[in-house]
Nucleic acid binder design. Structure first.
Length: 130
DNA sequence: CGTGTGACCGGCG
DNA sequence: ACGCCGGCCACAC
């Protein structure tokens, strides 16, 4: 999992799945999510783009579905859809937990949507140097 | 090994 | 502005 990931820089990753059994789409997603700075948030699409599968943002979201089983804990509350909407709040222990966690980080949430999402948006493919 | 599904996204009517 | 539909890909059954 310590691999530098980046599918685009790792053309063999797909066929090397069996070879590089360490590789895991989940692990990559988790790695990125863990690097999201406190008080910032990003979107599934941004992560997907960063991982090279930008047309498959669904995969990122789906990966998050198993996030609560992953260790250490994943700050999944910092990941929302492109509108800044907390679409995955029902996947937390309580539907309000996601919003509460965001508020703890000074992120304002209104009607299940992050206020000024554009402002606090954190784009891994831009902010994250590789 | 085939099929379904998903915390999405962008395009089109 | 709003809703529908197709695509894309990893993973569980």
């Amino acid at each position: 999992m310590k691999k530098k990931i980046l599918a685009k820089n790792n053309p063999e990753k797909e066929t090397a799945k069996s070879t590089v059994k360490e590789y895991s789409f989940f692990a990559d997603v988790y790695d990125v999510v863990r690097q999201i700075p406190k008080g910032r948030a990003t979107s599934y699409g941004a992560i997907a783009t960063y991982l090279g599968t930008k047309l498959s943002a669904r995969m990122v979201g789906w990966a998050m579905n198993a996030a609560h089983t992953a260790r250490p804990k994943i700050p999944a509350h910092r990941v929302v859809n492109r509108n800044g909407m907390l679409t995955g709040r029902f996947h937390f222990s309580t539907p309000t937990l996601m919003e509460e966690l965001l508020k703890k980080e000074k992120i304002l949430v209104e009607k299940d949507t992050i206020v000024d999402f554009k402002k606090i948006f954190w784009d891994p493919s831009k902010e994250l140097v590789l």
